[in-house]
Design a protein around this nucleic acid. Sequence first.
DNA 1: AGCGATGCAGCAAGCGCTTTCTATATACGG
DNA 2: CCGTATATAGAAAGCGCTTGCTGCATCGCT
Lengths: 349, 349
Amino acid sequence: MTVTLADVAARAQVSPATVSRVLNGNYPVAASTRERVLKAVDELDYVLNGPASALAAATSDLVGILVNDIADPFFGIMASAIQGEIGGPGGRAGGERLAVVCNTGGSPERELTYLTLLQRQRAAAVVLTGGAIEDAPHKAAMDAKVRKLTEAGTRVVLCGRPQAPDTGAIALTFDNRGGGQELTEHLIGLGHRRLGYIAGPQERTTTRHRLEGHRAALAAHGIEEDPRWTVHGRYDRRSGYEATLELMRRDPSLTAVVAANDSVALGACAALRDSGLRIPEDVSVAGFDDLPFSIDAVPSLTTVRLPLAEAGARAGRIAMGREEAPHGGIASVRGELMVRGSSGVPRSS
Amino acid sequence: MTVTLADVAARAQVSPATVSRVLNGNYPVAASTRERVLKAVDELDYVLNGPASALAAATSDLVGILVNDIADPFFGIMASAIQGEIGGPGGRAGGERLAVVCNTGGSPERELTYLTLLQRQRAAAVVLTGGAIEDAPHKAAMDAKVRKLTEAGTRVVLCGRPQAPDTGAIALTFDNRGGGQELTEHLIGLGHRRLGYIAGPQERTTTRHRLEGHRAALAAHGIEEDPRWTVHGRYDRRSGYEATLELMRRDPSLTAVVAANDSVALGACAALRDSGLRIPEDVSVAGFDDLPFSIDAVPSLTTVRLPLAEAGARAGRIAMGREEAPHGGIASVRGELMVRGSSGVPRSS
DNA sequence: AGCGATGCAGCAAGCGCTTTCTATATACGG
DNA sequence: CCGTATATAGAAAGCGCTTGCTGCATCGCT
């Protein structure tokens, strides 16, 4: 039915072994023979059987990329950068690898199941992006799985995710705490004393770290936080809209709203505008991540730029073994404060 | 080294065949035996060897999704919807499939190479998203490849991409022409007579169809188009910014700018603002796609909503054989005009 | 001219699983 | 109580490829 190695071998009048070697290019083959084989491959339109090859060689050319939400550019940008380094077609010579982007939707079970699926495929490497879920049993299960993967020779890289000690995974973490702190300090520096905070979903490391940074800044300046000033929500615009309305209802005297990320900040801006408030004259707004659209908001968003593409590329290179892992298996990637139009001095109270 | 089926069989005191049958659940196995096997699987932490299984069964649980740019929400949203239906973990019982999102970056070669890679993996199905490249040789090569895939039993679905006759692929096309026409007619209806158009990259079906719709609307209203009113660019914000500057330089009397998509439109808005022009009082702007951020632009963007998630979900279902293919193997998906704040009556000339 | 190196190709043994066919045990009807 | 249908488990033959090892020329050297 389908063309096999043997068919090619027969046509080129060589043994299957020789065809395999020509295709893999990892063994000396006379130029004339190689040519004959290549010609036969071409004429028969032969395509290697991946599973068979993977089975025999005990290796695979699959690389997994786990993301929380593929429709969110935050992950899209990282995935794109990772994939760019993975090679895939067009990459530097050597193995053409297939990048498998897996969408967990933020669900713990799916995260785990995808890891199993990847393990089943004997993936060459796995990159986990985005914050981790802070549930002890789940974390233990994840760590165990990751350890199993690394033990089986799969390189595991965490990109924008906290370190997982003793699992053999390499971590490239984002300094969410530092970024959050810097951002809030900027607002405090402008004179703000009453700041609302729209946090991400509970039980996520990213959420917690950014919030911790915010609180550290408040504490450092002796500002006592009102519990009403923090609302939790999802990482999307809608959530930011609703949370802002809630925040302003709870305390209309807030002069600034800090959002968990840029999408949430955009929602916050919309809510404020719809409430007849001007940005930043009445209320300042700040985001996080500096996604491409943030500069286009009106006014453009003050935020913390995370070098998503750079970090992704680096993670991809490490996953491919083309770059050395950072010392100690962990590196922290800093964000950069981007001060733009959405933050200003508070209205005189 | 790693645990194999045989190890599990030994531990459960059954034959490998029985273990395989328990795992696949496609053959009667006594409850007591099944339990024993499952227990052994659990104790040994056994994970099936995917390649071996795929080889023996001559089937794979990989599903490929080709996108032009994974960092662009246009594709992210579709990919997410497709993946949601593919099942992956969490999907309805039956095969847990691994969705492979492949980023072609709009490059013809990569598109082809990815298809080969998927063919090599004996993918169960492939979904191609986004416009096609209008280069005759490349189109022929793609069609040949697709035909080969469908002949080998891989289901191929085109989502938001023109039909490929005689390839066996199912097509869910977007009515870009109709949407483009409707959009421009809306502007003409408001009184605009001098409209700039920022088209996407040349040689893409999406670009051509949207532009054709625009021109059809102009023609229908007896408006003669000035060649200076059309500029080609990429599908990103930056390109929209630059193209708008160019457009306004060529003809400052334009009262409206129609963009190839929402990102481009956002760039256009930024360029106009930076030129001191008000939207829509001085110049109206329109986009295409209605991505989530479009409603947040200020003013919010008039655009054509494409049901990306719905179309993706449907494509996914068809790919999985869970929904019947449309009659004739092709269905056209219409867009919906969303009139918002960025379009208004032209300034009195 | 003789002999070990060297270069290139083939043989054949798997890789770990699925599945057809066969074997055994139990159940059932007459 | 026996023959036959029925349920369940095992034996074994691959699936298509890779690769260690073997074999045979050819080559360079003394």
